[in-house]
Simulated scan of single mutants.
Amino acid sequence: MASSAVRPTQLKRKSSDPHKLPTRFSMVRSFQLADFVTLGNGVCGCLSLMFAMKALITQNTDFLFTSFWCVPAGVLFDILDGRVARWRKSSSLLGQELDSLADFCSFGIAPAVLGFACGFQKMLDLVILTYFVCCGLARLARYNATVAAMPTDSNGKVKFFEGTPIPTTLVIVGVLAYGVHNGKFWRFANPMYQHEGPFAVFSQAFTPEYVWGGEISLFPGYELHPLVLMYAVSGTLMISRRLRIPKL
């Protein structure tokens, strides 16, 4: 009987077994309140993408404007998560990475998809939109890699940004929303889908005279919408190391 009894030391060793499965929802339990606010930013970015695709499928600008509004909502969550973290005096490497991923979704990918939805669909347009997305990704990666070495104030807050912060792409979204509101992009003759081929309706809606600013031909067969260059400017400013923006 005595030889079959489990010793206390054995119980302790078993409880500290490195191969033991983690408890359920252990990752979610480790989230701080600010992390859940950051997730709200990511949700806004995801919804913006879905509503933009829904707008193209249904040819309904109501879905497009909903997609536009999701981006400033993401900015609001992005502002709040930092304030909540300072209020709760809680910050972590997980929160920092989560914030960057949410920002990339809401302010990197979503504005590019909205540009595509508004008619920037030529091959050179796609090159510039891809450049813009890559700049946003590189800017966030650089910030995460260098934030620990950047100068801070007495509260431990970084004093300035290198390059424009990625939420400034809200300006681009505002330009697109203004254009759609004033009939500068979408001009569907028939709101219902016309079965004349998979791209017939879209070529009708995004002809040069309908897309704001028209289009120019740089090479035979390679056209460009000049307004898409605002994405190139925004991306270049984000990755600039000489441009320093004071952090408010």
Rank of each mutant, 00 (worst) to 15 (best):
S240C: 08
A232T: 09
I216N: 07
P208I: 08
R241A: 13
Q194V: 12
I166G: 00
G163E: 01
P151D: 02
F206H: 02
P151K: 02
D153P: 09
E162H: 13
K184V: 07
N182Y: 13
F185V: 01
F199E: 10
V211N: 01
W212K: 00
V180S: 01
T168E: 08
G179T: 03
G214T: 13
L229V: 07
W212L: 10
M230C: 15
V233I: 13
M192L: 14
I172A: 04
S234L: 09
R187D: 12
R244K: 11
G179N: 07
E162T: 09
S217C: 11
E209S: 15
P226Q: 06
G174S: 10
R244H: 04
R242T: 14
S217Y: 10
H181G: 07
G221I: 04
R244S: 11
Q194A: 08
L176H: 05
T152Y: 00
L237A: 05
P191N: 07
Y231H: 03
H181S: 14
S234C: 13
P191M: 00
A200D: 13
F206G: 03
F202D: 06
S217L: 11
T164G: 07
R242S: 15
R241Q: 15
H195W: 10
M230Y: 10
H195C: 08
R187Y: 11
V228H: 03
L218I: 07
L170C: 08
E223I: 02
F199S: 08
V211M: 04
F219P: 00
P151C: 00
F199N: 10
P167Q: 05
P165D: 04
Y193F: 09
T169C: 03
L229A: 09
A205K: 11
N155R: 12
G179R: 03
I172N: 03
A177G: 09
Y210K: 11
V228A: 01
V228Q: 02
W186E: 00
Y231L: 01
A200N: 13
S203E: 15
Y210I: 09
F188I: 11
N182Q: 14
V180D: 01
W212D: 04
P191K: 02
V173T: 02
A189T: 15
F185K: 00
P167D: 07
E209Y: 12
I172G: 05
S154Y: 12
M238G: 02
T207I: 12
P165E: 03
Y193C: 09
I166R: 05
V171A: 07
E209N: 13
L218S: 07
A205I: 14
